[in-house]
Design a protein around this nucleic acid. Structure first.
Lengths: 107, 107
DNA sequence: TTTTTATTACACCATATGGTGTAATATCAT
DNA sequence: ATGATATTACACCATATGGTGTAATAAAAA
């Protein structure tokens, strides 16, 4: 799988988006990250592994604790991909307008 | 699952992003959409169903053909979510700078 | 009307995902 | 040394995903 797919897949789960939201307020220990969830800690570990594989977090072991911090840079590619279609979601384009817009783009 | 998760999940597959790219150039018949892929047509039908469930495409039956068109609006929520983290991917923030930035945001 | 064409439905399969419980490891505190 | 704490590893399970082949449907063409 390509990297962009990994990133988009990683952020497609609400718990993982919540984790990113939490980490955007600063690094946190594993248990702090896990605290809002009512799942087992194992599940959180797995979510963190998915985020790590996508390059979206960093883990740093400090004693027996693990500090987790956000690495948002991979989100840039996601933002860029989505941004390609920004012009489409503002107006409702009928087929003729769309065709005209595309012809214009080709000149 | 919430809608945003559906949308992000839908665009996390390269074939489905390719389909969206194709449709951004204008509506297309099913076979035209399917043409670039070397999978069975069934697989394309399934991808289209995922995109439809996410609200990213519209199907309109015309005779025996199906015209498929892009509905990019759901991408807006995805763009907005990712945009939240834009400030993080430009500079490399160490933990102190991050903490300071957060404190500033709270005042 | 028969045949081709476009698309979907159904049944199936391998692997991925997201969760669990229990055990292992490593570090800190007593 | 013993025990508590933080985190992960392992084995397991149900369901989702992405693919396949074959059959069904509906409309166009012959």
């Amino acid at each position: 799988m390509d990297h962009l797919s990994d990133v988009l897949s990683a952020i497609s789960h609400p718990s993982r988006r919540a984790i990113i939201g939490r980490l955007s307020k600063g690094p946190a220990r594993f248990l702090d990250v896990a605290e809002p969830f009512d799942t087992a800690l194992n599940a959180v570990t797995k979510h963190l592994k998915v985020l790590e594989r996508a390059g979206l977090i960093e883990k740093k072991k400090q004693g027996r604790e693990v500090m987790i911090s956000l690495r948002a840079e991979p989100l840039r590619a996601a933002a860029e991909w989505v941004h390609e279609y920004e012009r489409f979601w503002n107006e409702r384009l009928d087929e003729f307008a769309l065709h005209f817009r595309n012809r214009k783009g080709k000149n």
